[in-house]
Protein backbone atom coordinates (compact mmCIF):
# COMPACT_ATOMS: atom_id res chain seq x y z
CA UNK A 1 0.00 0.00 0.00
CA UNK A 2 2.86 2.38 0.83
CA UNK A 3 4.54 1.53 -2.46
CA UNK A 4 1.33 2.13 -4.41
CA UNK A 5 0.65 5.40 -2.61
CA UNK A 6 4.20 6.59 -3.20
CA UNK A 7 3.89 5.70 -6.87
CA UNK A 8 0.59 7.59 -7.19
CA UNK A 9 2.07 10.61 -5.40
CA UNK A 10 5.19 10.53 -7.62
CA UNK A 11 3.55 9.89 -10.96
CA UNK A 12 0.84 12.49 -10.38
CA UNK A 13 3.62 14.93 -9.60
CA UNK A 14 5.69 14.03 -12.65
CA UNK A 15 2.76 14.22 -15.05
CA UNK A 16 1.24 17.39 -13.67
CA UNK A 17 4.36 19.25 -12.60
CA UNK A 18 4.09 21.82 -15.39
CA UNK A 19 0.42 22.46 -14.66
CA UNK A 20 1.04 22.82 -10.94
CA UNK A 21 3.81 25.30 -11.68
CA UNK A 22 1.63 27.21 -14.16
CA UNK A 23 -1.19 27.66 -11.67
CA UNK A 24 0.88 28.44 -8.62
CA UNK A 25 3.25 30.82 -10.36
CA UNK A 26 0.45 32.69 -12.17
CA UNK A 27 -1.61 32.64 -8.98
CA UNK A 28 1.21 34.23 -7.01
CA UNK A 29 1.59 36.92 -9.68
CA UNK A 30 -2.14 37.64 -9.39
CA UNK A 31 -2.15 37.85 -5.61
CA UNK A 32 0.93 40.07 -5.53
CA UNK A 33 -0.40 42.57 -8.02
CA UNK A 34 1.50 45.41 -6.42
CA UNK A 35 4.76 43.65 -7.31
CA UNK A 36 3.58 42.56 -10.74
CA UNK A 37 1.42 45.38 -12.13
CA UNK A 38 -0.48 44.83 -15.35
CA UNK A 39 0.25 47.06 -18.31
CA UNK A 40 -2.57 48.42 -20.49
CA UNK A 41 -2.99 46.15 -23.52
CA UNK A 42 -1.85 47.62 -26.81
CA UNK A 43 -4.88 47.83 -29.08
CA UNK A 44 -4.88 47.97 -32.86
CA UNK A 45 -8.09 48.94 -34.65
CA UNK A 46 -8.96 48.93 -38.34
CA UNK A 47 -12.12 49.02 -40.38
CA UNK A 48 -12.71 46.80 -43.38
CA UNK A 49 -15.42 46.21 -45.89
CA UNK A 50 -17.44 43.13 -45.12
CA UNK A 51 -18.72 40.92 -47.90
CA UNK A 52 -21.12 38.55 -46.24
CA UNK A 53 -24.28 37.46 -47.94
CA UNK A 54 -24.70 34.25 -46.02
CA UNK A 55 -26.93 33.07 -43.22
CA UNK A 56 -28.01 36.05 -41.05
CA UNK A 57 -27.65 33.82 -37.98
CA UNK A 58 -25.04 35.48 -35.69
CA UNK A 59 -23.27 32.17 -35.10
CA UNK A 60 -22.78 31.67 -38.83
CA UNK A 61 -21.43 35.22 -39.18
CA UNK A 62 -19.11 34.64 -36.24
CA UNK A 63 -17.71 31.50 -37.88
CA UNK A 64 -17.18 33.45 -41.13
CA UNK A 65 -15.38 36.28 -39.32
CA UNK A 66 -13.21 33.78 -37.48
CA UNK A 67 -12.18 32.08 -40.69
CA UNK A 68 -11.69 35.27 -42.72
CA UNK A 69 -9.82 37.40 -40.21
CA UNK A 70 -8.05 34.67 -38.26
CA UNK A 71 -9.61 35.38 -34.89
CA UNK A 72 -8.60 32.89 -32.24
CA UNK A 73 -9.58 32.30 -28.66
CA UNK A 74 -12.79 31.49 -26.83
CA UNK A 75 -15.73 32.94 -28.68
CA UNK A 76 -18.18 34.79 -26.45
CA UNK A 77 -21.90 35.02 -27.12
CA UNK A 78 -22.60 37.61 -29.87
CA UNK A 79 -24.26 40.80 -28.65
CA UNK A 80 -26.58 43.04 -30.62
CA UNK A 81 -26.26 46.70 -29.62
CA UNK A 82 -29.05 49.25 -29.49
CA UNK A 83 -27.93 50.92 -32.72
CA UNK A 84 -28.05 47.60 -34.59
CA UNK A 85 -24.33 46.87 -34.62
CA UNK A 86 -23.33 43.37 -33.67
CA UNK A 87 -20.37 42.76 -31.41
CA UNK A 88 -18.34 39.56 -31.49
CA UNK A 89 -15.52 38.91 -29.03
CA UNK A 90 -12.89 36.19 -28.85
CA UNK A 91 -11.02 35.93 -25.56
CA UNK A 92 -7.48 34.62 -25.50
CA UNK A 93 -4.63 34.95 -23.03
CA UNK A 94 -2.61 36.82 -25.66
CA UNK A 95 -5.33 39.44 -25.91
CA UNK A 96 -9.00 39.84 -26.77
CA UNK A 97 -10.13 40.36 -30.33
CA UNK A 98 -13.34 42.14 -31.21
CA UNK A 99 -15.32 42.53 -34.40
CA UNK A 100 -18.10 45.11 -34.60
CA UNK A 101 -20.31 44.60 -37.62
CA UNK A 102 -22.28 47.66 -38.73
CA UNK A 103 -26.06 47.51 -38.72
CA UNK A 104 -26.16 47.25 -42.52
CA UNK A 105 -23.64 44.42 -42.44
CA UNK A 106 -21.25 46.13 -44.87
CA UNK A 107 -18.42 47.11 -42.56
CA UNK A 108 -16.56 45.50 -39.75
CA UNK A 109 -14.37 47.26 -37.22
CA UNK A 110 -11.67 44.93 -35.95
CA UNK A 111 -9.83 45.53 -32.69
CA UNK A 112 -6.98 43.31 -31.62
CA UNK A 113 -5.45 43.70 -28.18
CA UNK A 114 -2.00 42.52 -27.26
CA UNK A 115 -1.63 41.71 -23.59
CA UNK A 116 1.61 42.10 -21.71
CA UNK A 117 3.21 39.14 -19.96
CA UNK A 118 1.53 39.72 -16.59
CA UNK A 119 -1.92 40.11 -18.17
CA UNK A 120 -1.35 36.88 -20.10
CA UNK A 121 -0.51 35.14 -16.84
CA UNK A 122 -3.75 36.41 -15.31
CA UNK A 123 -5.70 35.22 -18.34
CA UNK A 124 -4.07 31.76 -18.32
CA UNK A 125 -4.90 31.35 -14.63
CA UNK A 126 -8.55 32.31 -15.16
CA UNK A 127 -9.07 30.07 -18.19
CA UNK A 128 -11.65 27.44 -17.27
CA UNK A 129 -14.90 25.88 -18.42
CA UNK A 130 -15.74 23.20 -20.97
CA UNK A 131 -16.65 25.45 -23.88
CA UNK A 132 -14.90 27.14 -26.76
CA UNK A 133 -13.84 24.08 -28.70
CA UNK A 134 -11.49 21.12 -28.32
CA UNK A 135 -8.48 23.26 -27.32
CA UNK A 136 -10.31 24.76 -24.35
CA UNK A 137 -12.00 21.50 -23.43
CA UNK A 138 -8.57 19.88 -23.21
CA UNK A 139 -7.29 22.78 -21.11
CA UNK A 140 -10.30 22.42 -18.79
CA UNK A 141 -9.58 18.69 -18.51
CA UNK A 142 -5.99 19.30 -17.40
CA UNK A 143 -7.28 22.04 -15.09
CA UNK A 144 -9.54 19.41 -13.49
CA UNK A 145 -6.66 16.92 -13.24
CA UNK A 146 -4.45 19.48 -11.55
CA UNK A 147 -7.25 20.45 -9.15
CA UNK A 148 -7.88 16.82 -8.22
CA UNK A 149 -4.13 16.30 -7.88
CA UNK A 150 -3.99 18.97 -5.16
CA UNK A 151 -6.37 16.91 -3.04
CA UNK A 152 -4.53 13.72 -3.98
CA UNK A 153 -1.14 15.17 -2.98
CA UNK A 154 -2.53 16.25 0.38
CA UNK A 155 -4.09 12.87 1.19
CA UNK A 156 -1.27 10.65 -0.13
CA UNK A 157 1.32 12.95 1.40
CA UNK A 158 -0.22 12.68 4.86
CA UNK A 159 -0.49 8.88 4.47
CA UNK A 160 3.15 8.56 3.40
CA UNK A 161 4.32 10.74 6.28
CA UNK A 162 2.27 8.66 8.74
CA UNK A 163 3.55 5.37 7.40
CA UNK A 164 7.21 6.17 6.76
CA UNK A 165 8.20 8.56 9.52
CA UNK A 166 9.05 7.26 12.96
CA UNK A 167 9.45 10.56 14.80
CA UNK A 168 6.13 12.21 14.10
CA UNK A 169 6.02 15.09 16.57
CA UNK A 170 7.16 17.75 14.10
CA UNK A 171 4.71 16.43 11.54
CA UNK A 172 1.85 16.49 14.02
CA UNK A 173 2.67 20.07 14.95
CA UNK A 174 2.60 21.12 11.28
CA UNK A 175 -0.56 19.21 10.41
CA UNK A 176 -2.57 20.03 13.52
CA UNK A 177 -1.39 23.63 13.44
CA UNK A 178 -2.44 24.21 9.83
CA UNK A 179 -5.78 22.42 10.29
CA UNK A 180 -6.51 24.32 13.50
CA UNK A 181 -5.74 27.64 11.81
CA UNK A 182 -8.04 26.78 8.91
CA UNK A 183 -10.78 25.70 11.30
CA UNK A 184 -10.38 29.01 13.13
CA UNK A 185 -10.78 30.91 9.85
CA UNK A 186 -13.94 28.97 9.04
CA UNK A 187 -15.28 29.58 12.54
CA UNK A 188 -14.54 33.30 12.36
CA UNK A 189 -16.26 33.68 9.02
CA UNK A 190 -19.32 31.56 9.75
CA UNK A 191 -20.05 31.64 13.47
CA UNK A 192 -18.90 35.05 14.61
CA UNK A 193 -20.12 38.45 13.61
Amino acid sequence: MIKLTRRIHSIAGLVLMVWVLIYFVTGYVMVREQWFPRSTPVAETKTETLTWAGDPNPQALMAYLEMTYGFHGKGQAPVKMEDGTRRFVWSAPAGDQEAKVSSDGRQVQITRKNNGLVSRMHAVHRLHGYDGGIKYDLWAFFFDLTSAAMILFAITGVYLWWKTTRARLAGWICLVGSCAFTALVFYRLTMMR
Binding site: M150, I151, L152, A154, G157, G171, S178, C179
Partner: peptide, 15 residues
Protein backbone atom coordinates in the same frame (compact mmCIF):
# COMPACT_ATOMS: atom_id res chain seq x y z
CA UNK B 1 7.52 16.89 3.89
CA UNK B 2 6.83 19.47 6.60
CA UNK B 3 5.94 22.22 4.17
CA UNK B 4 3.49 19.84 2.58
CA UNK B 5 1.92 19.04 5.97
CA UNK B 6 1.58 22.76 6.64
CA UNK B 7 -0.25 23.20 3.34
CA UNK B 8 -2.66 20.24 3.61
CA UNK B 9 -5.85 22.23 4.35
CA UNK B 10 -4.99 24.87 1.76
CA UNK B 11 -4.38 22.22 -0.90
CA UNK B 12 -7.77 20.68 -0.19
CA UNK B 13 -9.47 24.09 -0.36
CA UNK B 14 -7.59 24.87 -3.57
CA UNK B 15 -8.53 21.55 -5.12
Amino acid sequence: LYGGLLCVPYLIIFG
